[in-house]
Write a protein that binds this DNA or RNA. Structure first.
Length: 1034
RNA sequence: GGGCGGUUAGCUCAGCGGUAGAGCACUACGUUGACAUCGUAGUGGCCACUGGUUCGAUCCCAGUACCGCCCACCA
């Protein structure tokens, strides 16, 4: 069946894609030679938040190229596919969708219903993503599709799998090893999502801000002499003050100040260090302390310390043992919980005076005065500023005012407000201002697992390319901070920790040592008080059944064991308090110990998504079960991912895999930049420059997009995607199609399939085979070196520049000659090689041509990648064809420049030809004549008047053009050529004339320069003579 | 403030010790047995700047300028 005139991507891609999927061509180990090395890639799992963008298309193209290349080479390949549950992002997308469809809100639904709803969202997005990958031509092992939350409680059918179990096991194991801990720390709090986030999820953005200056008055009406000096020690200001001046960009936090800090060497404040100041708007006094943190040269040199709302202040507060009073609730509004302000402040004063307290009590104290309670933090800021201004405690300056009516000038006092750029933290998902918040969270003690991850890259066990990625990697890991892994979300892996209530142990027995359970007091969460064992705050295990035993053991150690009690899991802490109270009440009435229950509840928080994606390499291979796949494909070969997630994901996978199984997760990490638009702008919905990969595929075909991706994959830069370029590679596909169509029309395959390399006799056939071998070497080398751009460029220039431009043209006359048979065989072979080598880059069109041409024993996807090498190269053929193409180029160029009509066939004269040239001419006469439009070649001894000269290696020709020639144009041509030669000769002579060159430069370089000079001078002689003759006729 | 890149033809980028290449764009010509999603020929570059190393630098080194990206708590 003859090939269609054009390739139609839409129809063919769908059909071919289906065939690949049906035949499971991407199954693990498909087309593997026995005993072949394994090659595996883990897909960076796309978030199930929607669809794939153009960056995914780029990323997955590169992975598929490597996978297809290795698979065709007979390696045992696995491309592991799957998706990521993306906790915060998916929860956000789902809630947005729920709002759009006017569904009940998340809180109205309740946790269980909401999670079911997210699973639906997940299923939808997952389907979109998988079909997009398939349209791109990705040859993953679709039967192994994984999901980072597979097997989680509540997962619908079809979501079985053990990823959840693996995540829980890792948490428990790491907890048992002390690598995970719980603690009240200052964390980045997202008031929109009402969850903690890690520092990586915070974006610091410079915004216009203000700095206010407040006066904190010394207690007891004290005063001091404030002296300011310049650099030379001269006094510039001396005044008696009854206050200390502080500056802040966040006035609302002053309500929680614990102290004012100054630098210990700051002489200005030395007289008042240790004294107390009144906190404005609050009925509290706080001390002036010293700490190395304040910079004497910035602002007033005095810093208000709010331990609960600033990371620096927190550190100072810890050093000075100051209480950290939390001022805001989870939504970033000023607290409205707890006791009235008057009561809270009394207790705060006691604590300040030295009354013993603990973290929990300090956290429970709400020191926000009633007036501000419940206010949004930004409203509270305005209110605090206004109130401080009103009581005259703002630092003020004199401002010149001009009365608009009278024009008279007068000075007024205005509060000092500096307008300045400040760096403000924003949530990367929510885009709201992040609040440092003192909360209980779970952390990975990263410093304890970081070293192997550093060593692995230093030793080369894992290689990161480009190399600059390694520097970034080291820098971050060397300065690693604890990783906050708990999130106050619902969608995710729930933390496998259960809490119990603290009960005052002393109440279990009365003074006589008798049972006094009826007096037991519920104190709060286990661990808040000193229940049973201060260390046994909670229990961590894979499931409730596993922790039950541990709680029972704890209970058994009570003074009066609740040895008949039952540990029962309840929903939350609130339910636990109620349940225990009911149970105790019943016991009091019945005195029947079987009524006693001990309620426990699970930590409601879920794990940071990156904690689970950190297990992707082992988790998808079945770990903790030691599956055959785990043994075969781990460590994986290559990770291809965006440089933007090197910390989020790459570094954490390294740390976690090394911590879990003691092996690196991958041998090579290939990092690429963000895909931008043609102008280098970041694609964004608001800019309207987003390129949808499916639209590109619809318009240009998947192959064109893929080839563009490969061609622009140079290391290190910004990736600019230009549709013009994609169109160019679409044309390239068409070019290949047409060349194959030409061959097919000419019966080169003659119904046969691909076979061993032919052994042709004609130079041109030997030559193209050598060129094929060359390009194979280049492509293999480029791919081995992750230079997708170089591989694409080699293939492009070979297929278009060599095969189509020259070989197909050469073959045309040969099809009519004695070499027709070998030429057909050679062309079939060469085009087969083109299809094979292009297949990883352009799988659809090559698969289609493959099927449309010879009789094939397998689909192209499972064809064997060639292994021939230098034996196919033929130096003599190479030299000869270089001469032939050079001569044709020279004749064409000369003809064109003197405006010889294209269709005109010319008689050519040979003025001189050495034996090599004669032989080359003899063997390729038909080809040259046809492509250069030469009618005949006649020996001549003299160049006739009105002829143009063609110089070739070892030969000189003339084209008599009397009457046809454009003399002026020919003169210009010759002069231009001479000028160029003159420049070259000048350079060469300069080098050769330098005595140091001959002595210092390598011999072959000197020889080459000499030979070059000789050749150039020879050409100058010929062209010079031609110019002279031109003068004669002109 | 710290770190990492980049600066080569109008555009997008290769090259990285022997005075420059590709694709696109542009110009002229063109329907020659597949291809106008094409063919042939051509125009176009003191390789950011200043020093240094070298026989020789776009390439190595130092500095400058500009442009990106990442990290960072100056209240």
């Amino acid at each position: 069946m003859p090939m269609e005139k054009t390739f139609s991507p839409a129809e063919a891609e769908a059909r071919i894609s289906k065939a690949w999927i049906d035949r499971k061509v991407g199954a693990a180990g498909a087309h593997a030679r026995p005993g072949a090395p394994a090659f595996s890639i883990m897909i960076p799992p796309p978030n199930v938040t929607g669809s794939l963008h153009i960056g995914h298309a780029f990323n997955n193209t590169l992975q598929d190229i490597l996978i297809r290349w290795h698979r065709m080479r007979g390696h045992d390949t696995l491309w592991q596919v799957g998706t990521d549950h993306a906790g915060i992002a998916t929860q956000m997308v789902t809630e947005r969708d729920m709002a759009l469809h006017k569904e009940p809100s998340r809180t109205e639904m309740g946790r269980e219903t909401f999670l079911a709803r997210v699973w639906q969202q997940k299923a939808k997005s997952r389907g979109t993503i998988i079909s997009q990958l398939q349209r791109l031509g990705a040859s993953c092992d679709w039967d192994r599709e994984a999901f980072t939350m597979s097997g989680a409680p509540g997962a619908p059918s079809g979501e079985e799998g053990n990823f959840h179990d693996a995540v829980i096991k890792v948490f428990v194991d790491m907890y048992d090893k002390g690598l995970i801990y719980r603690g009240k720390r200052l964390v980045n709090w997202d008031p929109h999502f009402e969850t903690a986030i890690s520092d990586l999820e915070v974006e610091n953005i410079e915004v216009a801000g203000h700095m206010w200056h407040f006066k904190y008055r010394l207690a007891g009406g004290e005063t001091y002499e404030y002296i300011e000096k310049d650099e030379d020690g001269n006094v510039t200001l001396r005044e008696v003050r009854d206050y200390i001046s502080i500056a802040t960009t966040r006035p609302e936090t002053m309500l929680g100040d614990g102290a004012v800090a100054v630098h210990p060497l700051d002489t200005r404040y030395a007289p008042i260090v240790g004294k107390m100041v009144h906190l404005p708007l609050c009925d509290r006094v706080i001390p002036i302390i010293t700490d190395a943190y304040p910079d004497s040269n910035f602002g007033s040199g005095a810093v208000k310390i709010t331990g609960a709302h600033d990371f620096n202040d927190y550190a100072v507060a810890k050093r000075a043992n100051l209480p950290c009073y939390r001022l805001m609730d989870t939504r970033g509004a000023m607290r409205s919980d707890g006791a009235p302000y008057a009561d809270a402040v009394v207790r705060a004063r006691e604590i300040a005076a030295g009354s013993s307290t603990d973290e929990a009590e300090v956290d429970s104290l709400n020191l926000v005065p009633e007036k501000y309670r419940g206010m949004d933090r930004f409203d509270a800021r305005k209110a605090v500023i206004a109130d401080i201004n009103a009581i005259g405690l703002s630092v003020s300056t004199l401002v010149k005012q001009i009365d608009p009516e009278t024009g008279s000038e007068h000075l007024t006092r205005e509060p000092l407000v500096d307008v300045r750029k400040i760096m403000q933290p924003f949530g990367d998902r929510s885009k709201v201002v992040i609040e440092p918040m003192l909360t209980d969270q779970w952390f990975v003690d990263t410093v304890r697992i970081v070293q192997p991850a550093l060593d692995a890259v230093r030793s080369g066990a894992t290689r990161i390319i480009p190399e600059s990625g390694e520097k970034t990697y080291f820098h971050w890991l060397e300065n690693i901070e604890p990783w906050c892994i708990s999130r106050q979300l619902w969608w995710g892996h729930q933390i496998p920790v259960w809490y119990g209530l603290a009960i005052d142990a002393d109440d279990f027995v009365d003074d006589e040592g008798d049972n006094a359970l009826d007096q037991v007091e519920i104190l709060g969460i286990l661990g808040d008080g000193g229940y049973i064992d201060r260390e046994a705050r909670f229990h961590c295990a894979a499931d409730a059944a596993a922790v039950t035993g541990r709680f029972n053991d704890d209970l058994a150690r009570l003074p009066h064991p609740l040895n008949v009690s039952r540990v029962v899991e309840v929903a939350d802490r609130h339910a636990a308090v109620e349940a225990l109270a009911v149970s105790l009440a019943e016991y009091v009435v019945t005195q029947d110990p079987t009524h006693l229950i001990y309620p426990i509840w699970r930590d409601p928080d879920v794990l940071d998504t990156w904690f689970s994606s950190g297990l992707w390499p082992v988790g998808t291979l079945g770990w903790p079960v030691n599956t055959p796949e785990l043994q075969k494909y781990f460590p994986t070969s290559t990770l291809i991912t965006g440089a933007d997630i090197i910390f989020f994901w790459v570094a954490r996978m390294m740390m976690m895999q090394l911590a879990l199984v003691g092996q690196v997760p991958f041998n090579t990490v290939y990092l690429h930049g963000l895909v931008r638009d043609a102008k280098g702008k970041k694609m964004s919905k608001s800019l309207g420059n987003v390129i949808d990969p499916l639209e590109i595929i619809d318009e240009y075909g998947a192959d064109a997009l893929r080839f563009s991706n490969a061609a622009m994959a140079s290391l290190g830069g910004v990736l600019k995607l230009d549709t013009q370029r994609i169109a160019g590679y679409r044309n390239f596909g068409t070019k290949l199609w047409n060349a194959c169509r030409f061959a097919e029309i000419n019966g080169v395959w003659q119904g046969h399939g691909t076979g061993p390399a032919p052994k042709p006799k004609a130079t041109v056939n030997k030559w193209i085979m050598g060129e094929t071998a060359k390009v194979l070497t280049e492509v293999d080398a480029a791919l081995a070196d992750y230079r997708f751009d170089n591989a694409a460029a080699s293939l492009y220039s070979f297929v278009w520049g060599k095969v189509c431009d020259w070989y197909v043209e050469f073959a045309k006359p040969l099809f009519d000659g004695p070499e027709a048979t070998e030429t057909r065989a050679t062309m079939a072979w060469v085009l087969d090689q083109c299809m094979i080598m292009l297949h990883p880059f352009m799988p659809f069109i090559t698969e289609e041509v493959w099927a449309a041409t010879g009789t094939r024993s397998s689909m192209l996807v499972h064809a064997d990648w060639p292994t021939y090498g230098p034996e196919l190269a033929d130096a003599a053929a190479d030299t000869e064809m270089t001469w032939v193409t050079g001569l044709i180029d020279a004749i064409r160029s000369a003809r064109s420049e003197v405006h010889v009509p294209v269709g005109l066939k010319l008689d050519m004269l040979s003025l001189s030809m050495d034996p090599a040239a004669q032989a080359a001419w003899a063997r390729n006469e038909v080809l040259i004549k046809r492509l250069a439009r030469v009618e005949s070649l006649t020996p001549a001894t003299q160049t006739p008047k009105g002829a143009i000269t063609i110089a070739a290696t070892g030969a000189s020709f003339a084209l008599p053009l009397d009457g046809v020639i454009d003399i002026a144009a020919e003169r210009t041509r010759l002069q231009k050529a001479l000028e160029k030669l003159g420049k070259e000769i000048g350079g060469l002579k300069g080098r050769l004339g330098n005595p140091n060159f001959a002595t210092s430069a390598p011999e072959e370089v000197v020889d080459e320069a000499r030979a070059n000079l000789e050749a150039r001078e020879d050409e100058v002689a010929k062209l010079g003579a031609a110019l002279k003759r031109l003068a004669e006729i002109g």
